[in-house]
Amino acid sequence: MKYALYPGCTVLGRGRNYEMAARAVAAIFDIEFIDLFDFECCGFPIKSMNYETFLVMAARNLLSAEEKGLDICTLCNACTSSLTEVNKYLIEHFDEKTRLVALLRKKGIDYRMGRNIDVKHFTKILYEDIGIDEIQKLIKKKLLNLHVAPHYGCHYLKPTAIYKNPEDSENPQSLDELISVTGAHSMDYNTKTGCCGAGILAISEDLAYSIARPKLQELSTNSADAMILMCPFCSIMFDDNQRKIEQKFQERYNLPVLYYPQLLGLALGIDEKSLGLRMNRVRTTTLLEKVKHV
């Protein structure tokens, strides 16, 4: 299985642990990543400023993979929704695709069109292309004493209209299943489908922190061992900024936040160093101790 890896700006800038874990897990399942060295921003931050620019930015990244005949694997939920949305639009509007190719050519950015490609989040590749049964076969160590909470992230599920096999966005189950296969217990909780607030972090920190807070409150009250997610934006809110949120509200959560490939990696027997588990902001020491005594 071969994919062009589209890590996205935020993973490169702030999610080295995520990238390491994803690559280590991919290797175990024979998912080959071809690095797209000419990738630039997916266009997500530009969509609300100028739709046409967003369209061209996303299209250029897509065309670069299409020329190489590769489907794209994304790591970030925001990149996933941007590239999926534009990819669907270009497949359904061939006239628009040829217009954008010509527009780019005029600027000296030249791509040959190829077959239509697919855009898939790494977690979705694990869930749909590899599948729970195959993952099960390679589990070396069941993480039986962990109680963890899945956080899907808005753009992993929504807008459902752009995705090929959309889940019920009010009651998603795929990440729960992916957690269960590691042997860990996937907790149900009230704020499960809540937004992380990262979308407005640059506009209003106070508001963004207030939006992230209920999840942290609920999960620390319920003594979750960790929150499990797969988006670097959500991780910036819940992991990188957890300390600031604690300070702002004078509360203590101390909730480790892991990327899903980090959790799966532990169950696959990959060492903690290769999974970047020491790079998570909220210390994972207690959790790792717990896993040792399974």
């Binding site: 490169l12 080295r16 990238e19 390491m20 690559r23 690095d35 060295f37 000419d38 630039e40 921003c41 530009i46 400023m49 100028n50 046409e52 620019t53 061209v56 930015m57 250029r60 527009l103 780019l104 005029k106 600027k107 000296g108 950015i109 290769s274 970047g276």
Partner: peptide
């Protein structure tokens, strides 16, 4: 740092985004 952690080096961008921002007239 990337290389120290076994990750591939990331090339500098080729200025596509800057050109695209020009195209759309932003």
């Amino acid at each position: 740092k990337r290389i120290a952690f076994g990750l591939p080096k990331v090339e500098k961008t080729k200025g596509f985004t800057k050109k695209i921002i020009e195209i759309a007239g932003l």
